[in-house]
Structure formats: structure tokens, C-alpha cells
């Protein structure tokens, strides 16, 4: 991959303390990962393997003690606008209109009003929400809310965008549309993205690279390169794209191994 590493994770481990039993949950073990500029890295793995834990550490929402995590060369301490997060759902503010949600990051950074207005409009158009600027979240569908969430994160112009199963809560049809759109957005904005998902198809469709996690304690099992140009990534062409189907089947096989080896437990 060309470009420099925007996110560097070295020997990262994580244990959750359990206040009641005094034992701890070993969530992550020896994670080494780099995400390069303009790269789209997808992470898949069995439920409870520590994907969200990793993302929260990078987001700065979860303090870590073992290992290192750096964005743009800076050690991560707490959340910051250089790492934007798109959560699964229920994260845009109900008391802000679509436009004011999307412009919130710029407002917090005290970007001048006129520039904010211009950039907000740009991202509203990008995610296809023109005409909904003054609506409030409760007036939007689930898919539209996630578009707002994506636009809000992009508009703040982070170094890396972190997404934790952002499309898991919408219906299958909307999900496909949103995935196609995200692809288009990635082409248009050239963002660096760390994307977590349960869906093998989603990972193969969106990722330049797909990282497969083992079951808990989460470790990186393998990584698979998915060498399909962005322009060719459109859902209607995927069934006949051997690069896609091969990658998908391979990832599926690896994830299955983890899930079935769970039974021996």
C-alpha cells in the first residue's frame, strides 16, 4: 500500500476488570495493525471477539494500558476530532436539525459560519439528503439517520474514520444502498477508514484489506487483500466478479473456523 501509516497499533492488549468477581475479561491480545492513507480496512470476527473494544480504544473512548496506539504519529489519549466515529445507531443528536448535526464538528472547532454552511451543504448533497436540511432526526428513516451520521463524521474532516457496524441496524435493502453509497463517498473523498462488521459480504465488498479476528481474546488471525478497483465495486456486478466471490468465500471459511471451534469449548 502506498502512502504513510495513519493508524499504528503495536502489541495492544486489553483486559476488562470485573468489579463484582474481581476477575477480568481478556478482550484483546497482541494486536499489531497499520492502516495506511486512503486505505479501507475492514475487520470481521466472531461476536464478542473484541472488535468494538479495539475501535473504542482507537476512538479514545476506552483507556488502554498495554501496547501502543497512534494516529498520525500522536499517541492516543482520549477522544479527538482527528478520529471520527460512526456508531451503529442512536448517535445523532435529536435536538439538532440535519444541517446542524452535520455541521456540529465544524461548530465545535469554531470554523467561520459561512464556510461551515458551504461545507455542510457539500456533505448533505454527497449523502443525498438535499431538501432535508431542516428536518429533525425523529422525522428521518433509519437509513437517512445513518447518512447524517456519516456526513457528520466526514464533515469534521478526521484523519481516520472509524465505523462500528454502521449499517447493522437497517433493513437488508437499505443496507445494500448504503454500502454502494459509501463506496461512492470513499472514491469522492479519499478517506482512511477502519470499518468493523459482522457481515463477511460487507467486508469483502468494501475493504481494500480484510482483517479476520480470532475468537476472544481477539487476535489477528489473518488478513486478506481484496484487489478490486473502487470503480468496479457496485453490488449489481459483484456476483459475477471472481475476485469478490473468492475473497468472500475465503473470509467466510476463516470466520467459520473461529465460530465452529467455539463449540469445542
Amino acid at each position: 500500500m502506498s502512502g504513510e501509516a495513519k493508524l499504528i497499533i503495536q502489541d495492544l492488549c486489553h483486559h476488562y476488570p470485573d468489579e463484582y468477581t474481581g476477575e477480568s475479561v481478556h478482550a484483546l491480545e497482541g494486536i499489531n495493525l497499520q492502516v495506511y492513507e486512503n486505505e479501507f480496512v475492514a475487520i470481521v470476527g466472531p461476536s464478542g471477539c473484541g472488535k468494538t473494544t479495539l475501535l473504542n480504544i482507537v476512538a479514545g473512548l476506552l483507556p488502554y494500558r498495554e501496547g501502543r496506539a497512534m494516529v498520525d504519529g500522536n499517541e492516543i489519549h482520549g477522544p479527538g476530532p482527528d478520529r471520527g466515529v460512526v456508531f451503529q445507531e442512536h448517535a445523532i443528536l435529536p435536538w439538532r436539525s440535519v444541517a446542524r448535526n452535520i455541521g456540529h464538528g465544524l461548530e465545535l472547532q469554531r470554523v467561520p459560519k459561512e464556510e461551515t454552511r458551504r461545507r455542510v451543504q457539500e456533505y448533505i448533497d454527497l449523502v443525498g439528503l438535499s431538501g432535508f436540511e431542516d428536518r429533525y432526526p425523529h422525522e428521518l428513516s433509519g437509513g437517512m439517520k445513518q447518512r447524517v451520521a456519516v456526513a457528520r463524521t466526514l464533515c469534521a474532516d478526521p484523519v481516520i474514520m472509524l465505523m462500528d457496524e454502521p449499517f447493522a441496524a437497517v433493513d437488508a435493502q437499505t443496507r445494500i444502498t448504503l454500502q454502494d453509497e459509501l463506496n461512492r463517498i470513499v472514491m469522492a473523498t479519499a478517506k482512511t477508514i477502519l470499518f468493523i462488521t459482522h457481515s463477511v459480504e460487507e467486508a469483502a465488498f468494501l475493504g481494500d484489506r480484510c482483517i479476520v479476528f480470532s475468537r476472544r481474546p481477539g487476535q489477528i488471525k489473518t488478513e486478506i487483500k481484496i484487489d478490486i478497483p473502487r470503480e468496479e465495486r457496485v453490488w449489481k456486478d459483484m456476483a459475477s466478479n471472481p475476485k469478490f466471490t473468492n475473497a468472500r468465500d475465503e473470509i467466510l471459511r476463516l470466520v467459520r473456523q473461529e465460530v465452529t471451534s467455539d463449540d469445542e469449548h
Binding site: A59, G60, L61, G78, P79, G80, P81, R83, G84, V85, F87, H90, A91, I92, L93, H104, G105, L108, Q109, R152, T153, A156
Partner: peptide, 14 residues
């Protein structure tokens, strides 16, 4: 909801 606070913090809110 804690989510709202986290969302604002990751947008750079003090």
C-alpha cells in the same frame, strides 16, 4: 444517553 456524549467528544467537544 452516553452515546450522545461520546459522539460529541469524538467530534472534538470540550
Amino acid at each position: 444517553p452516553v452515546r450522545y456524549i461520546q459522539a460529541a467528544r469524538t467530534l472534538g467537544a470540550s
